[in-house]
Design a protein around this nucleic acid. Structure first.
Ligand code: MN
Ligand code: MN
Ligand code: ZN
Ligand code: ZN
Lengths: 148, 148
DNA sequence: TCATAAAATGATAATGATTATCAAAATAGA
DNA sequence: TCTATTTTGATAATCATTATCATTTTATGA
């Protein structure tokens, strides 16, 4: 999986005439070693551990590249920070998000996807992408928080 | 409908001990006279026509009040601008958005809503809110744009 | 290996949307 | 009218992201 993505990126880089750099390799390693939905800032801090001199701009630029290369997906939750998550070409899922502790659970629902397409078709739209986010309390937080 | 919302806001204002001001009345009138999903900036420009001296901060503040009062809903599309739309208490709908001309079509789908709740329940979440946005090309733009 | 053109990096400034601050103006009561 | 309190509008501050640009790195081929 990780190797697949690395070679996917190398292919992309070759096709685009990108040069290979220490920074990009490192950012890719760090990104692929996570399994969360990390903000750019969080990724930047992780990368900085191995490369204290890295610039934020490089991290921003590189993550955008990963998205273009099809191995990452850019997402913006309601906290106004851009996050990146792993994605294998063609794969798709939506998110359940805890409003209290920010836990994220991924899900897919074929029926919802189908209904979305039907709705779009009914209005003459051709869908390119969609965003479905369910906000609420996760099981743990439900217990902790007093019911209003 | 408009009268309903005006009195809803007056009630809210009374309960909160808000004073009544020319600016708020005007912003409410302008907001209620629209039927679109306007950004704060757009609302600000509309209001400025009748009250050139109005401050943006006042518009920002006042729209937030409307949301708290339950007569407006704050929404953020993928363009990173906060928009406000009319909403009557309890009403809900989702959006189909043209990525090219920004046309917005509203829809409701009971089945999707039900499935969302089922998914949340399956993961032990209690949903508080959700966001469903379908991005694509509207009928008009589909014709205009060359197919890739 | 060396030179060189092109690309990449990192520091920093700029941007854009929103919020905070605060003095001046407006409002609601007494 | 007087006064305490709220509201306003101008402005500065903030925050995430992007643009700029001098400097450093890379690829390539003499
Ligand atoms: Mn995910
Ligand atoms: Mn709407
Ligand atoms: Zn939680
Ligand atoms: Zn369109």
């Amino acid at each position: 999986m990780i190797l697949q993505k690395k070679s996917a990126f190398n292919q992309f880089a070759a096709a685009r005439g990108l040069r290979s750099t220490r920074q990009r390799d490192l950012i890719l390693d760090v990104f692929l070693s996570t399994h969360e939905h990390l903000s750019v800032e969080e990724l930047y801090l992780k990368v900085k551990v191995s490369a204290p001199g890295i610039g934020q701009a490089t991290v921003y630029r590189t993550l955008k590249l990963f998205a273009e290369a099809g191995l990452a997906r850019e997402m913006t939750l309601s906290d106004g920070q851009t996050r990146y998550e792993h994605v294998m070409a063609g794969e798709h899922h939506d998110h359940l998000i805890c409003s209290r502790c920010a836990t994220i659970v991924e899900f897919e629902d074929a029926t919802i996807e189908r209904l979305q397409n039907e709705i779009a078709a009914r209005h003459g739209f051709s869908i390119r992408s969609h965003r479905l986010e369910l906000y609420g309390l996760c099981p743990a937080c439900k217990e902790t928080v007093p019911v209003p």
